[in-house]
Amino acid sequence: MSFAIQPHLSVPQIMHRVSLALIPALLAYTWIFGWGVVLNVLLAVATALAVEALLLKIRHKPFKAPFGDGSAILTALLLCMALPPLLPWWVVVIGSAIAILLGKQLYGGLGFNPFNPAMVGYVVLLISFPREMSLWMAPIGGEHSLSLLDTLRYVFTEQLPAAVGGIDAYTMATPLDALKTGLGLEQAMGEIMAMPMFGYLGGSGWEIINALILLGGLWMLYTRLITWHVPVAMLGTLFLIAGIFHLIDPQSYASPVFHIVTGGALLGAFFIATDPVSGATSLRGQLIFGAGVGLFTYIIRTWGGYPDGVAFSILLMNMAAPTIDYYTRPRVFGHKGDQG
């Protein structure tokens, strides 16, 4: 095969472009779920840059102000796409700091991290602060919404406007959450999916965000920032397995389309599993890597304890990436064996 290589980008250019591809989805996320997302972004980006600069200073490495190599910002933005839209400030700061510190710098910085830093930060928060991490705002059009001032007050003091009552008035389960709960109550799939929160395909509000993530992903494919291998392998596997179970028992297993367009499947497929540092590097390896992420995502979503499984799946496959790479080396020119 032969690729016409585009004008060559530098590492910061690549990072900034991936971040750029994420902006439409982030804007939609803010529009649908409120000001909390903006505060998350500001806190996460500021923390990521501060920790990155500090750690590089300690390690006597250069940090090019103001954004370094662009990877810290990207990590912070990816983390924010995964985080619930309203969180106390310290949760965001801890998550972002852990992503950069434990996820990246302690391994030796960008290029040496075996795990995707944003997913490390996210999973640490998910396990450590399950209460905060499971509160999702109701999407736009709900009964109550928080103004910017109210949001600020909640983020920094964890107090809500007295008039409305508790946090429950503002929050709502995510579609995957509701699915898990519904199935736990032995409701039929048709019954669950008929709830208004499930929207047309993957949950009201979520559909728009995921459509914009898909758009950003397609733009990255078009500009060759990523190759098709990981997204196609991951989404294809998820679709295939979900399809098989859905065909066998449509009342117990959600449709494959729902699996693709809800939760973190598209974000993971285009923006996170495609992380070259922590993923497989050969093209055949990327197919296996993507397929593994899709498989584990389905398993965790369907039979695991968490509603979504993309983050865990990616971390699991990150562990497997070096081995995958070792066994999927292309046939070197002049060597015998299969065409690579």
């Binding site: 590492v11 990877s71 290029g111 190759t227 070259p276 540092v277």
Partner: peptide, 13 residues
């Protein structure tokens, strides 16, 4: 400008 990010461009060419 940074260390290897394993983007794989080199392997393609």
């Amino acid at each position: 400008i940074s260390d290897c990010i394993r983007c794989g461009q080199c392997a393609l060419v």
